[in-house]
């Protein structure tokens, strides 16, 4: 079964074909980073307009690379995300499914991220603890099996990636902030500052807004401080909290593996520390699978289609869609 996946929840316009629920036949991502860079963040109206221009070429490219004329189903992200972006991919997916006479299935973007290891690391044994960290989300999830999730914790304010973007902007390092800070921090001394680790010993929830404020105050106090030192100390604080809580979750739940996902999972310090922190197998997604892509949407869509059947054509975008709890 070939499933065409479509992903337009934020600033990536993506299409992919996945067969047998996990074999990537093609995966195309048209990034809009250049369109948003001058604003220092994703501008919703610009993203919505760009999706309209980029989506059909991405779909045609994905179909051509997979060498198929018609998939067996079309899957598209219907939330969470920017509503003006979601509805472009969702509407086009419905039109495509109708035109081919194949089922349409809506996919929860967060569940899509949880299917990255299904694609890249099929040897991984469930249950898993998944740390999902990006510009839009920061979640710690216990996944007993595909479709059976329990939320352990989440951010109470800024997402981890948002903290990277805001601190990078403050330090004049540009957008997106994650890769910029990762690069600069390599030349810095993380011990030059000691930034707060919010709620470190306390449950599985996260808070990053205070950290950003602490960075601003520290630089105001020591304006002569080297930017690489500030970046390294900031990154150290974020990674410390993420890894400490993820490792504790693995131990507490008896999970057989730890997975990273989302754009922040591309951070080199986070990847290194995650490997060292647990003695169960750790899945570190490839760069292409960290960031938003449609292969993960097609894989999750394949699973949902087999388990729950197709979605109705009346499915609406749901910007605040949450990951379903274990039933």
């Amino acid at each position: 079964m070939n499933v065409l996946g479509i992903e337009t929840s934020c600033d990536e316009t993506a299409a992919a074909v996945v067969s047998e629920g996990r074999v990537v036949e093609s995966s195309v991502v048209s990034s809009q980073i250049d369109l948003h860079a001058r604003y220092g963040g994703v501008v919703p109206e610009i993203a919505g307009r760009a999706h309209v221009e980029l989506l059909v070429p991405a779909v045609e490219e994905a179909m051509a690379r997979a060498g198929i004329e018609r998939p067996d189903a079309v899957a598209a992200t219907y939330g969470p995300g920017l509503v003006g972006s979601l509805l472009v991919g969702l509407s086009a997916a419905k039109g495509l499914a109708m035109s081919w006479g194949v089922p349409f299935v809506g996919v929860n973007h967060l569940e899509g991220h949880l299917f990255a290891p299904v694609i890249e690391e099929p040897s991984l044994r469930w249950p898993l603890v998944v740390l999902l960290v990006s510009g839009g989300h920061t979640l710690l999830v216990h996944a007993a099996a595909p479709g059976r999730y329990r939320l352990l914790g989440q951010t109470l304010d800024d997402a981890a990636g948002e903290a990277f973007d805001k601190v990078a902007r403050f330090l004049g390092l540009g957008y997106p902030g994650g890769p910029a800070i990762d690069r600069v921090a390599k030349e810095g001394d993380p011990a030059a500052f000691t930034f707060p680790r919010a709620m470190l010993g306390d449950g599985y929830d996260f808070s990053f807004s205070g950290l950003k404020t602490a960075v601003v105050r520290a630089v105001e106090r020591r304006p002569e401080a080297a930017t690489p030192d500030v970046a390294a100390a900031f990154q150290d604080a974020v990674v410390d909290v993420l890894v400490t809580k993820a490792a504790r979750a693995v131990r507490a739940t008896g999970a057989r593996g730890l997975c990273l996902g989302g754009g922040v999972a591309a951070n080199s310090l986070l990847r290194r520390r995650a490997l060292e922190a647990v003695d169960v197998p750790t899945y570190l997604p490839s760069m292409a699978m960290c960031t938003d892509n449609a292969a993960m949407v097609a894989a999750a869509g394949s699973f949902r289609l087999l388990r729950d059947g197709p979605s109705p054509l009346s499915l609406a975008p749901d910007p605040g869609l949450f990951l379903e709890f274990e039933r």
């Binding site: 919505g48 309209v52 509503v83 509805l87 991919g89 509407s91 039109g95 495509l96 035109s99």
Partner: peptide, 19 residues
């Protein structure tokens, strides 16, 4: 209205591209 427009245009694009 931009939101409505994009629903119609994207649906038309999907239908036409598929057909």
């Amino acid at each position: 209205l931009f939101t409505g427009l994009r629903v119609g245009v994207a649906t038309a694009q999907g239908l036409a591209a598929g057909l």
